[in-house]
């Protein structure tokens, strides 16, 4: 079974945006500090609205924060060898 992971840049962006604390970010996006900790640790994938709120807070596009990584990518259907 393929292992999928969502990498994120939340911690880096917090420090690049005036070193805001996890609590300050949590208050801005309307979640608890524990949720920010879990997101940064990659243990929780946020919902789309929350991901957009985090992106808006940092003023970056959503793909600038969250990147989807498929460790076992499926072969392309339009492969030139096919």
């Amino acid at each position: 079974m393929a292992k999928n992971e969502i990498k994120n840049q939340v911690r880096r962006l917090r420090f690049e945006n005036g070193e805001i604390t996890q609590q300050q970010l949590a208050d801005k996006v309307g979640v608890t500090r524990q949720t920010i900790i879990a997101i940064e640790a990659g243990k929780y994938a946020p919902s789309l609205p929350l991901a957009f709120r985090i992106a808006q807070t940092f003023g970056v596009p959503i793909e600038g924060i969250f990147q989807y990584q498929d460790e076992d990518p499926q072969p392309s259907a339009t492969s030139p060898d096919a």
Binding site: A26, D27, G30, V31, T32, Q34, T35, A38, Y44, P46, S47, L50
Partner: peptide, 10 residues
């Protein structure tokens, strides 16, 4: 006053 009671993860 700014404390969030519960969020989506909770």
């Amino acid at each position: 006053p700014t404390e969030v009671k519960t969020d989506e993860r909770d």
